[in-house]
Design a protein around this nucleic acid. Structure first.
Lengths: 334, 334
DNA sequence: CTGAAAGCGCTTACAG
DNA sequence: CTGAAAGCGCTTACAG
């Protein structure tokens, strides 16, 4: 491949001049510039970005680390990150960890060796020491979707409040036996969604029934089996709050497979509002997170930090989620 | 950040020795090695990968370009690519183009400047000249899911055959008015799926009815509206072959919204076999592509090419897809 | 086994 | 406006 020297030779100038002509930031004689451009075209010259990055100490690239790319939540966030990054001349490297913290550490290990100028993590957990370390080293880091208290900049929704409101909606529409099918509560986000559920019930004077608190965490998502087992034991809630849409899809299938109807027998509320959620049967009532917006904001914040502005006190930005009402909840009279 | 010089100074050796101790490929005195490692730990030294890549002329990284990360087909392929890459010490950079050829060219432009050692494209179209150019330059390139004739190495399924068999299954189960809801036929893959449909009907002596050939290409997927419009015009097929699962989900919704039942009134067959397809209502009969396997094979092929083996005649590998029978097709008597 | 030197391909302060 | 030189942080042939 052609190097800057080849171009210089062909254009009859020095490499420095080629570099300057290409940068566009420094005055170069018009005629010289044209000769350089001509040579660049003729040789199909592409500057070696490794050399450039080595010299300049930055690569205009950000690493986006997501836990599971098959969960449509993360592609939506990624879109927001990419669009903003691109506007600012940054490229994003998307890394999928499959919830495997070792895979994640491998990525971080490799990328922090000057590949990327900063990271956005959608994978934060309590045990994510590597994220804290990065931050302590002064490496630009922003979290999205999942956060770690106030220690690191983050863009998240108010999971507690959204969950509270979703459950309150079920109560207001006449439901009394509300089951929650939740994710991994070692993630703050699911813990907060559970708290929202609990407090909404308490606020309405309803009891927390342990048999109605279901755990569908883990790989392969166990929402189907868990709900089916509950139903077959004769425990019949009048509503289920599934804390993600993929879980809601499995919950609905389980209810139907037990010969019951959604929403006539059991109402269901989801969380996410995926692309396909409006097309399910019944169209799903669910909490819509502004995922694209969250990605976009996280990217903006990170780029500010990379550009050396305000890396002072970490800020946790809260964005609004809202309940989208479709047809999976029935109003019940008592 | 610490550099190799800092480590050398602290360990009382030359930078060359540090480099050699770290590489592990060259004999280094045991005691010297330990002093180096000690210094590496103490300074938390990470070699600058840009400098390394510049010197060595490779980065052990591959670029994976996908058209739409929100379509679950591509995450599945990406998994296969990542797992194999990782086994071989490669990192993968995942780039989402959103079907925007300009975005794609931007990525390729940036990554080919020595960021990556090779590319896997899941975005190939007839107009993808940039892919051909890359290949002509000698840049390692492999295609997956979508291919470009015999010009470039590729791993794909036999779309014609899979489609033929899906439609034949509908015919064998007693369907006579079979509608196809297809994607963008400027993609070879959808053209081939259409050919399979056509020939299966012809082989059974059934006519091709233009009103039953529906186009649901384009952004936001128009499967819902198109099918609904057909049904409202009074055109009632006894089966629909949707050439992707996301399309099948919209088709089913449209049929139900017209007061009809799946599969009692209309059978539906999809294509993809997504994670959630088994949980839909009804559980979807669909063509299962071995997506993970395809990604894995593409990665293996690319890494072979990068390692300088056999970049001779391009090979198009065909992998087997198979129909997964669930409950969205009803056997009809005549 | 180890060090000094050269060089990967750029950019940029320093002279002119 | 332009060139020669130095240097970014590594690796590796060349000596010893």
């Amino acid at each position: 491949m052609a190097t800057i020297k080849d171009v210089a030779k062909r254009a009859g100038v020095s490499p420095s001049t080629v570099s300057r002509a290409l940068s566009g930031k420094v005055p170069v004689d018009q005629e010289t510039r044209e000769r350089v451009m001509e040579a660049v075209r003729a040789l199909n010259y592409k500057p070696n970005i490794l050399a450039k990055g080595l010299k300049e100490g930055r690569t205009n690239t950000i690493g986006l680390i997501v836990p599971n790319i098959s969960n449509p939540v993360f592609p939506a966030v990624a879109r927001g990150v990419e669009d903003v990054a691109r506007e600012h001349g940054f490229t994003v490297i998307l890394c999928n960890t499959d919830e495997d913290i070792e895979a994640e550490k491998d990525y971080v290990e490799k990328l922090q060796k000057r590949w990327v100028d900063g990271f956005i993590f959608a994978t934060a957990r309590k045990e994510s020491h590597h994220i804290l370390q990065l931050k302590e080293k002064g490496f630009p880091v922003v979290l999205v979707v999942r956060h770690m208290g106030q220690a690191v900049d983050a863009v998240v929704i108010d999971n507690y409040k959204s969950s509270f409101e979703a459950v309150k909606y079920l109560i207001d529409t006449g439901h009394r036996k509300i089951c929650i099918v939740n994710g991994d509560t070692s993630l703050t986000l699911y813990k907060e969604r559970f708290e929202g559920y609990k407090h909404a019930l308490q606020a309405a004077g309803l009891p927390i029934t342990p048999e109605l608190v279901l755990d569908a965490a883990g790989r392969g998502d166990t929402g189907y089996e868990t709900v089916r087992a509950m139903l077959e034991k004769g425990m019949l809630p009048d509503a289920v709050f599934a804390t993600s849409d993929p879980r809601a899809i499995r919950v609905i299938r389980a209810i139907k497979d037990c010969g019951l109807s959604v929403p006539d027998d059991v109402s269901v509320v989801g969380f996410d509002d995926l692309d396909i959620s409006a097309f399910l049967d019944p169209p799903l009532t669910t909490v819509c997170q502004p995922l694209y917006e969250m990605g976009a904001r996280a990217a903006r914040r990170l780029i500010d930090i990379i550009n050396g502005e305000k890396y002072g006190q970490p800020k946790v930005e809260l964005v609004e989620a809202k309940l989208v009402i479709r047809k999976s909840v029935k109003v019940r009279e008592h």
